[in-house]
Structure formats: structure tokens, C-alpha cells
Write a protein that binds this DNA or RNA. Structure first.
Lengths: 187, 187
DNA sequence: TATATTATTTATCCTATGTTAATTTTTAGG
DNA sequence: CCTAAAAATTAACATAGGATAAATAATATA
């Protein structure tokens, strides 16, 4: 997935603005297992995922809680970091070798301040991400784990192939044992 | 809470931009029980809550699910509506008589397109809302209802005073009966 | 290929929360 | 102040999902 595609899929911007963004972007490849963002640290970067898959997680009562998966075309960002310039609360780990586009948060902020199209692009990005998170919050609020798993494999069949079940279970808010139980009932 | 305060608390903007926003705002009072946004309908407005309290809810398996409370200073918005111009998935109901600032979404969109400060103000609004939702999603993912209730009464003691327990229970993702049980154990 | 490691499943038992229904408390109207 | 309606609590029972441990399967490494 090209950087132009990723940019315009978030929100179409005029060619000149897209160019400004592109100029700041650096392409890198990192290996599976690499931690891209770390709890309590400030990262100076934002990434767009060209190829691969990643997860965001944190610890709650000594248990890893995966709360997001990022895939081709997704923006990888630590929100607390990006928005408030404060240490993030999550780790983000590469689950496969990944091709990434990297851009410095500070450069992005400069563009927000000087290019209205990019400011609106950034606005739109946050807005669509917000809707996604809200929908997930709602779905989890009143459906059972089994239903949520069904929904996951319908909407994201590839996830289950590419990601360890322990991460899927955590993402669904249940234990791995419980997920195994659910899976065995389906087959 | 004045409209200037509300605007600048979201993200400070230069006086001239704040003026542009202010000019579009109309102040209204509506009675308890009024539905401000309705499922599957498009609203042309965004509101800022001067005084009062509201909730956003939807139906899931014939059960009301409250997923957000808005209070003094909060922005009342149907995200799907505001972002995509599509029918929203939620109802928003006034739980008390409310004083509101109303602004037309179309007017706001015009300002986003022509004033970079306001575009960045809108960006910032979405970003901070995003962090709030993300934190709630995470908190719900791996803490028990009793803990979540404790957290609620610590951080938002007034909510429990002002809002019916059935709504609180739904917000916590449990039944009212279960919340009663939790409350009785605490006392 | 054999072995060690890691991931997944299965089994058992237990607890938090759901469901339904009855009871008590609170609120709103006459 | 009294009554009807609405909200909250309590009780009894059912179930989804957690915890632990053991067994199996998959993966990586020598």
C-alpha cells in the first residue's frame, strides 16, 4: 500500500498538501517482535503500516491486555503521546516483519499549524478513529464473548490466521481458555 | 459555563476565530426528557452543554445501553452524524432541564474549511474525545464491575447523585440488579 | 530428525453476573 | 398528606466465563 493511498484513504487532500506530507515520510523495515512504542515513554514518531500486522497492549493486574490490532493501511500511533505529548500507556509490538512509513510528530504538528488541508486531514483521522473505538466499546458493552468472536471472524477472518489466539482472547476481553471453549463449540 | 470557556477549554483559539464560532451559536433551554438526537436520523446540529446532564444510549437486543454521559462543558454530538453525515446509531436524552449552545453542523464545516485555527480546534476535540473513549474501553476490558463502579464514584461522585442507577448500571455494562448487589456489599 | 519450547485445548471446579420475581423505597400528582 | 407509578433492592436460581492444572499440538532449534 503506497503512502499516497494511505494518506488519501484517511481523507483526500490536494496534491500539494500530499506532497508536503510525503516529503517528511521515511520508509523503514523492522523485524517481528520489535516494540514500536513503549509504556511511559514518549515517541517522536507516527507510523503508517505498509505491510504487516501489529498490536497495542498494556498491563492490567500483571496481565497483558491487547486492545488494538493494526494492519496494512493503518496508522500506528500512541494517542496520549501524539495528542498531549505525554508518555503513552501502551506498548505496540510488531507481530510480523513490517514495512512502515515513519513521520516525526513534530513535523506533522508543523504541517497542522500551517496547512489547513492537513489540519482537516488530521481532524478527520481522529474522528474516524473515534467512531471505530466507540463502536468497539458499544459492541463489548452488551454482547457475549461468543458473539463478539463470531463477529470478529466474520469481519476480520485474516486476524485469526495471522495472530496468536492468546492475543485474540485478550482483545475480546476473555481468557485464552475461554476462547478455546468457544472455538470448540463452534466446530 | 460560558461559550468562550467551553470553546477554549477544548483548545484555545485566537480571539478572532472564537468570535466566528460565537456568532454561529444560539442559546436554548430544553426540558428534561427531550431527545436531542435520535437513532437513524440525521441531526443538523452540534450542542455544547452549558448546564444539565444528558446520556447517549442505543438498543441492543431490546435493551437500552447507555454508553456516555455528558455534563456541563461537554460537547453533545452524534459522531456518525457529524463525521460522515450519516444517520447516528444513538439516542441522546436530556436527564435534566438543560441550557445548551447550539451550532449548525454545516456552519461548523464551513469554518473548518476556511479557518485553520478552527480546523485544529476540531482536530483537537476529536483527539481528546478519542483518548477518553479508548481509556474507557481499556478499563472495561479487564476490570470487574465492582472495581469499575468504585472508580466511577471516585472520579465522578456527582454522577451517581444525578443519574438513575439503571443508567449507571448500563454504562458499567452490568444489570441494575447486579449493581444493587455491588452497592450493598460496599455499605 | 529429535528435543525443547511455546501455543492451544480439555477438564474440573468456582465465582461473578444474568434472569426472574417479589418486596421495599422513592418520586410525582392529585 | 395520600396514592399511584417508578426506581431500587433483595432473594433464589442459572450460566458464562475465570483459575488452575494437565494433556496435546505446533513451532523452533540443535
Amino acid at each position: 500500500m503506497s503512502i499516497e493511498q494511505i494518506i488519501n484513504q484517511i481523507y483526500p487532500v490536494p496534491e500539494t498538501s500530499a506532497q508536503k506530507l510525503k516529503q517528511l515520510v521515511e520508509e523503514i523495515t523492522l523485524p517481528k517482535g520489535r516494540i514500536l512504542f513503549e509504556v511511559d515513554k514518549i515517541s517522536r514518531n507516527v507510523y503508517f503500516l505498509k505491510k504487516g500486522i501489529v498490536r497495542a497492549y498494556l498491563f492490567q493486574h500483571d496481565t497483558e491486555v491487547t486492545f488494538w490490532f493494526g494492519r496494512e493501511g493503518d496508522t500506528i500511533i500512541s494517542m496520549k503521546n501524539y495528542v498531549d505529548n505525554k508518555p503513552g500507556y501502551e506498548n505496540i509490538e510488531l507481530l510480523e516483519d513490517c514495512d512502515l512509513y515513519r513521520i516525526k510528530t513534530s513535523d506533522l504538528r508543523k504541517l497542522f499549524a500551517e496547512d489547513i488541508h492537513i489540519a482537516n486531514w488530521g481532524r478527520r483521522f481522529a474522528e474516524t478513529e473515534l467512531i471505530k473505538v466507540e463502536e468497539r466499546l458499544i459492541s463489548r458493552q452488551f454482547s457475549m464473548a461468543a458473539d463478539r468472536y463470531q463477529e470478529l471472524i466474520t469481519h476480520n477472518p485474516d486476524l485469526v490466521q495471522r495472530v496468536q489466539l492468546c492475543h485474540i482472547a485478550s482483545y475480546l476481553g476473555i481468557t485464552q481458555v475461554s476462547l478455546s471453549r468457544i472455538r470448540s463449540k463452534i466446530r
